[in-house]
Design a protein around this nucleic acid. Structure first.
Lengths: 232, 232
DNA sequence: ATTGCAGGATTGTTGAACAATCCTCTACGT
DNA sequence: ACGTAGAGGATTGTTCAACAATCCTGCAAT
């Protein structure tokens, strides 16, 4: 029984890796990646003809892909003008931090029943960030930091919460791209992350949530300041 | 200066009401409404030809609309098979309640700085539900109940949180449609909602959050039970 | 400096076409 | 009777070409 169950899981994974995905979704995957890693900078227009020619897909298929990205808020769609990589306003950044505060602190607070592996994943994400910092790979530090916060929400054991969190973090990448000093922004939080991870490992959920709250106070004001050069 | 600013705001509102929406979005609006109000029951297939003929739009446009609804999880898209109105599993319902618990209790907990009108909106939603119950309009009781919980999240002053909450509640409508007794399900919570609203009006955020937690314990188990006839 | 007006470019939407896949029904062999 | 294999039809996936609607640019006029 248990062996067949394992087969099932493997097959389920393969099913996703096999074709089983429309071109529109794959196009969306590519564009999403390019937006997140910064190859497509905020404000860039994604013209239907240009992108369509580049990826060798028809305009209709491309428009389906655009709809997905619009819904994920990674690009904006201006009627009769086209789609553009989103430019986050200060209000957007503030809002994203509000959502994060809601999801993350709440997840940590009620993480008492969370499975052990999920708690360990939090520590692992912190370790990964520390390694990246040692190597001075600051972009990777940011990535690890996001995985850390993703792991916090994962404590809630809710696929939908995980999904929203992923989207929120993807959106935040847009903000990080216009940030000038990645090191000064990410480095200070390594210690705090470790502290929170240790509190979780010790099952001190309440204290961890409070530390996390402090984290948000600091991070938000700092990010908004670094965003000051932008218009509201 | 201040007068011109007011003009600007008014014009900004009108801009949205004017056409400014693609056919795909309007089609999605229609279908979304039909799914939410139950005209399209879970499991129903939305064939491209059928819906396209009915709404007099081309298949390509229709597929753009479908992408939106898929992303909102109101319909599912099976490759080479078509799109179907979503059938929620018990796991889905449990997950939706997890997300609600995260968002709502967290919003209430930190509602200290929320603007007065937002707190009043909570009470108004409760009143609306009581009126509907008096008239025995049980579906409207459910709607008012949702507006109540939407108002709770609105206390967080986050457009994105509001948006996700709207989506979560829309998804929950799918579950309510397969529920047999709407009265027995919605009626018991009227008193609890009133209690929570009063606590909020009295600025007892912490107590309100605790009562809300109790609400979720009750509602979730009851809904899962009422969902027992379904397969996992 | 602002307005009005071509002209060109891009998007919005449609319809048709073809390939790929799925579903159903039938025929076959055991 | 049962499971299987395959043919046929229906639906979806994707592309292409066309046209309408809208936007942007530049220039002329006031």
């Amino acid at each position: 029984m248990t062996t067949t169950d394992k087969w099932m899981d493997l097959l389920a994974d393969d099913r996703l890796l096999l074709d089983r995905a429309s071109t529109a979704e794959r196009v969306a995957d590519i564009l999403r990646q390019r937006v997140i890693d910064g190859a497509l900078t905020p404000g860039t227009q994604l013209s239907e003809e240009g992108v369509g020619k580049a990826l060798a897909v028809s305009r209709n298929t491309l428009r389906e892909a655009f709809r997905l990205l619009v819904h994920e808020r990674l690009v904006v769609h201006e009627f009769h003008r086209g789609v553009f990589v989103r430019v986050l306003s200060v209000d957007d950044v503030v809002d994203l931090y509000r959502v994060r505060r809601l999801l993350e602190t709440s997840s940590v607070q009620r993480a008492a029943g969370a499975p052990g592996p999920l708690v360990e994943a939090v520590s692992e994400a912190v370790t990964e960030g520390e390694r990246a910092a040692w190597d001075e790979r600051w972009w990777d530090v940011g990535t690890a930091n996001m995985r850390f916060h993703e792991a916090l929400v994962a404590l809630a054991c809710s696929p939908r919460a995980n999904e929203t969190m992923r989207q929120v973090l993807a959106e935040l990448r847009l903000a990080f791209h216009v940030m000038s000093r990645p090191r000064e922004f990410h480095e200070p939080y390594l210690g705090l992350n470790r502290e929170i991870a240790d509190l979780l490992a010790a099952a001190s959920w309440r204290t961890a949530a409070e530390r996390l709250d402090a984290y948000f106070d600091a991070a938000e004001t700092q990010l908004v300041e670094g965003y000051g050069s932008y218009r509201a």
